[in-house]
Design a protein around this nucleic acid. Structure first.
Lengths: 196, 196
DNA sequence: CACTACATGTAACTAGTTACATGATTCG
DNA sequence: CGAATCATGTAACTAGTTACATGTAGTG
């Protein structure tokens, strides 16, 4: 289960409540690992049960409390171990490619439109990832600032570059996909180039 | 459920038994959509229940039979409809990027090794996809040959190109990922380029 | 006082994974 | 006759999705 490690990775920066984490995994970091609210809360409790994180109740008004989770030494050890183990290749399951594989069965205009929407999405994803990469390089995200506080200032620059590079990867893949789809649209437009 | 549509897409080429499909989804087409045996058999029966495919029992020796499934008009209609509907963007969940996001927490050599294995895998995937693309362009795969039999010869070339293009996409994404990982290794090697 | 944000949960479901189980047929 | 391949299944599980449910606190 990698949601576990995604949560540990975030909590390493600073303690957070379930609610904080829900928001986090619905937005910014959702570009790397997405998870719905209904999965996060139970996972946090299971992680506390096995000692990876510790939850502390904090009063927020007379009747409302929140549980703030922080990573434990055991959790940190688990995270570091996991980081060093190569994952076995995950089974391929690409919705868009699966559709494209049979685009010869439907009319070219419809297929073209499906690709068009895909291109729009991928380009948006690439832009957002690129923007986030810039924010990281500028040390403009609250979580990164928190993280760096406990690190040697000499290490800040390489850490920032590594994190930024991850989002460069997201952007690069999205652009590759968009470019692939555009080439697909070209193929749909020219059914039989003469001379063949 | 897209396994359903993956199965329909294959059965459109020719009728197949569950066993055939299991082998198919463990190999070649597994590069687009992977599925284990334990998922395929029940799915086929459910698809037959709702009339998307039809199973016919065939004797294979005195005691052994196999069920050969073929796509029904209803199944073909379902497939064609599905092909024209853009999928909503699927939630991002990238194991490698999640690991890389925290590579600053472990030593550079370990991180480097994890990336190395990833690169090997991606390059292998790219090569295999590229090889399959070539086989398609040469009309060298049995299923493609079956498919083309029921198509106007004038359409063969554009159909082949479309299918081949899908595997070009697989290869392109794999190469992009490998290149990203290589750049990551470079970042790990040069902790602090002078002058900053 | 209404609206938004805070805060946490649960139920029912679909998809996918891992592992086991069983027997028939073919080929060397 | 033993091994590989053909052929089909099931059980138990983990992960992820969709939808609903409930109440508190702050802001205009």
């Amino acid at each position: 289960m990698s949601l576990k490690h995604a949560l540990l990775g975030v909590l390493e920066a600073r303690p957070m409540s379930g609610y904080d984490l829900v928001r986090f995994f619905s937005s910014s970091s959702g570009w790397i690992w997405a998870a719905p609210q209904s999965q996060i809360y139970p996972t946090l409790r299971r992680m506390e049960d096995i000692g990876l994180i510790q939850g502390d109740d904090e009063a927020r008004g007379p009747r409302l409390t929140r549980t703030v989770y922080s990573i434990t030494p055991k959790g940190l050890a688990e995270l570091k171990t996991w980081l060093g183990i190569p994952a076995k290749p995950s089974p391929v399951r690409d919705h868009m490619l699966l559709q494209a594989l049979n685009f010869d069965m439907i009319d070219a205009d419809t297929a073209h439109a499906v690709l068009e929407q895909f291109i729009t999405e991928q380009e948006k994803a690439a832009e957002e990832a690129e923007a986030h990469r810039q924010r990281l390089l500028n040390r403009d995200t609250p979580l990164l600032v928190e993280r760096l506080k406990r690190r040697d200032p000499d290490d800040h620059e390489p850490i920032v570059r590594l994190k930024a590079h991850v989002f460069a990867g997201v952007a690069a893949v999205a652009r590759t996909r968009a470019e692939w789809a555009r080439e697909g649209q070209r193929l749909l437009r020219e059914p039989l180039p003469d001379g063949e």
